[in-house]
Computed example of a mutant assay.
Amino acid sequence: MWKEKKKHKLAEQLASTLVKYDLSWQVSNNEYNRTLLITMPRDPLNVTKRRRVSVQKREERRKNTEERLERTALFIAAKTGIVEIVRKFLEVYPASIYHVTKNKQNILTMAVKYRQKKILKIIERTGTMESLVGQITDKGRTVLHEVARMDYYKAEHLAGVAFHLQDELR
């Protein structure tokens, strides 16, 4: 028991030190700046092939960038439910709660998207819920849309199908 407690204390000290020197949350994307680039098609004769290739490239880019854009320490902690690190961030840098990623997601959107109730309670205690709820992502989604999505839902380990359905309804 003593060894486990010692490991926990060391992990907390390490997290405190890392939070103190992590400034990744300061690069926030609150303004909407987008450059539109129009180019001529390379092969105007084969339209269907060009469309198919562009759709494939767009899907690959989406998959690659979706996870990469959320990789600040604060959002990783919020996404995985590491309450201690989120608390430390908000103690050391209270303004970090307003950090927004390139795809216009904030900490509340992350907590709701990945179903992290403990992180949501921390956000409620800060009193900034009203200002975070109004954020709309680049895909036009609000926090309510993220609540309704079942992509990131992890069901609890319940005994029967009826209990799973009851949990989803809750």
Rank of each mutant, 00 (worst) to 15 (best):
W2N: 14
K7G: 05
K9V: 07
E12D: 12
E12F: 12
Q13H: 09
S16C: 10
T17M: 06
L18Y: 03
V19I: 02
D22Q: 00
L23G: 04
W25R: 02
S28L: 00
N29M: 11
N29H: 14
R34Q: 12
L36C: 02
L37T: 09
I38A: 02
P41C: 06
R42P: 02
L45Y: 08
T48N: 07
R50S: 08
V53E: 11
V53Y: 08
Q56F: 13
K57F: 05
R58F: 11
T65Q: 15
E67I: 14
R68L: 13
E70T: 10
R71I: 03
A77I: 06
K79T: 15
T80R: 08
G81E: 05
E84S: 14
I85H: 09
K88V: 07
F89V: 12
E91K: 01
V92T: 09
Y93E: 01
P94D: 06
P94F: 06
Y98I: 01
Y98W: 10
V100S: 06
T101M: 13
K102I: 00
K102M: 09
I107Y: 01
L108I: 13
M110P: 03
A111S: 07
Q116H: 10
K117C: 03
K117H: 02
K118G: 09
I123N: 02
I123R: 03
E124L: 05
G127T: 05
S131I: 02
D138L: 03
G140K: 04
R141H: 15
V143I: 09
H145E: 13
H145F: 15
V147M: 12
A155Q: 09
L158S: 10
G160C: 00
D167E: 12
R170N: 11
R170G: 11
